[in-house]
Design a binder for these strands. Structure first.
Length: 474
DNA sequence: TTTTGAGTTGTTCGA
DNA sequence: GTCGAACAACTCAAA
């Protein structure tokens, strides 16, 4: 009897465990063809994210090799690549795990319709979030737009058990051709930053699992207090792996629930952070416009500046505000930024520098290896004030006060700002290796004066809010 | 339908 | 140094 292979199309689910599409394919008894497609959505990723997904694909490829299988790599429009593979292999079906961003949804809808019209089974499975967005609603049947009631609801739900990774996959008699990952040169856009960030990245399914285990054993109990201090190793660091699906949110959720049931302090707080990730994806699903547009229309009247010279200083970690600059440099050196630092840096750009949150978000998209469109749309709009949170307009972070509170001994700032230190640490010097040469930065230069004094920035921001947002409400 | 309580993460000022 | 109040008003979600 002829083989009727099943294609499993990998996208943001670079793992074998808790992978519904892969499970269904392997249980079909047919040969499984795993494929990753370098399509326009990969092309659209920022520099660091594109490099990072390449690393994840490499690790996934190794995992399949260990199963005597092969991850097929192809470049092109997803539909055409899949149709080509179907022709070449006689595959009868294509399975994948859903994504929930607007561009991904549009692509997948077309792929599904076209494949089905060609009499190929095309089916998507859940996996990138805990609950399907259309399954969580208020009593009125509307999607939640406030976190607390959303959280109360999903906290009581059960996302189900995790799926074991396949032990073996039905072999294929003849493998379709694969492109080489090295030829894709996924780090091309990163220039000098690539080697610096590579030292900090934690790639692949095994590494993600270990990260989770280490966090639960070493750091969970102090998570609630420690998570606000960017110099401490207090957080899970899993955003990087969750972003590319190297670990499933359900795996993390169930581990955290077990810790909570064991009475571990910090477990509830950690769970709620998973809740925020979930909330962001549900919001984006129901409000696809919020990637680019103010969630509160009243904010369309706010005279944010487009890109400008101050914003450029912000990007370069040269605002003269040490906590903000440390944050921006951390992103350049590690590809990530501590959550508290993200808030302070974002507040500074949108309020002190009166620059549109999209300008900052676009930069984050280019620099973060844990880039997540939903979390960033929510986070940036939340800080800016335009998002679903009703943040009081007068909430303007004071970078100096934040530093005193959350970096009391200056360890975080010293870690990433070399200027003024007689013997700066490697992490601070690494910044100068990572940034483009044309910026002309050197650790021997003087640290800049502040772009704007905090008091002046605060007063200016509040004045603009007063004459636009709050005036319109009257 | 109407009412009611509540709402991630802050800062500043004055007692 | 510490503490409470003011900084606005709105919208959501549930009863």
């Amino acid at each position: 009897m002829a083989q009727k292979p099943v294609i499993v199309w990998f996208r943001r689910d670079l793992r074998l465990a808790d992978n519904a599409a892969l499970r269904d394919a392997s249980e079909s008894g047919q040969p499984v063809i795993p494929v990753f497609i370098h399509d326009e959505t990969v092309e659209a990723l920022g520099a660091a994210a594109r490099w990072r997904i390449g690393e994840g694909v490499s690790a996934l490829s190794d995992s399949f090799s260990a199963l005597d299988s092969r991850l097929v790599l192809r470049r092109g429009r997803a539909l055409e690549v899949l149709q080509g593979l179907i022709r070449e292999t006689g595959a009868q079906s294509v399975l994948w795990n859903r994504v929930y961003d607007p561009a991904g949804i549009a692509r997948d809808r077309e792929v599904k319709a076209e494949l089905r019209s060609g009499a190929t089974e095309a089916r998507s499975c859940p996996g990138a979030i805990l609950f399907e967005p259309w399954g969580v609603a208020t009593r009125d049947g509307k999607p939640y737009s406030v976190f607390s009631p959303f959280w109360r609801t999903i906290r009581a739900l059960d996302p189900g058990t995790t799926i074991a990774p396949p032990v073996r996959l039905q072999p294929l008699s003849e493998w379709p051709q694969s492109e080489r990952l090295s030829e894709w040169d996924m780090g091309a856009a990163m220039q000098c930053g690539r080697d610096v960030i590579a030292r900090c990245a934690c790639v692949g399914e095994k590494a993600a699992q270990k990260r989770l285990e280490d966090f639960l054993s070493d750091r969970l109990d102090r998570y609630a207090e420690g998570r606000d201090f960017p110099a401490l190793p207090a957080t899970s660091g899993l955003s990087e792996n969750l972003a590319w699906g190297e670990i499933s949110p359900r795996t993390v959720w169930r581990a955290a629930i077990a810790a909570w049931e064991a009475g571990r302090p910090g477990a509830e707080k950690f769970l709620s952070e998973l809740g925020w990730r979930e909330f962001a994806w549900h919001l984006l699903y129901h409000n696809p416009g919020m990637e680019r547009a103010n969630w509160r229309p009243a904010w369309d009247a706010f005279p944010w500046r487009d890109d400008n010279a101050d914003a450029e200083r912000w990007r370069r970690g040269m605002t003269g505000e040490p906590f903000v600059d440390a944050a921006m440099r951390e992103m350049y050196v590690t590809g990530r930024m501590h959550n508290r630092a993200r808030m302070v840096a974002a507040s500074y750009l949108t309020k002190h520098l009166l620059t549109h949150w999209r300008v900052g978000m676009d930069w984050f998209a280019d620099c973060l290896i844990d880039w997540d469109p939903a979390a960033n749309a929510l986070g940036w709009q939340w800080v800016a004030g335009s998002g679903p949170d009703a943040a009081p307009y007068f909430r303007v972070f004071n970078p100096g006060t934040q530093a005193v509170k959350f970096d009391p001994d200056g360890a975080y700032r010293a870690r990433f700002i070399a200027e003024g230190q007689s013997d700066p640490p490697r992490s601070a010097l690494a910044y100068f290796d990572a940034v483009p040469r044309r910026w002309g930065l050197s650790p021997d230069c003087d640290y800049p004066d502040p772009v704007i004094a905090h008091v002046d920035g605060r007063v200016r921001a509040l004045a603009v809010y007063g004459t636009t947002i709050s005036a319109r409400a009257k």
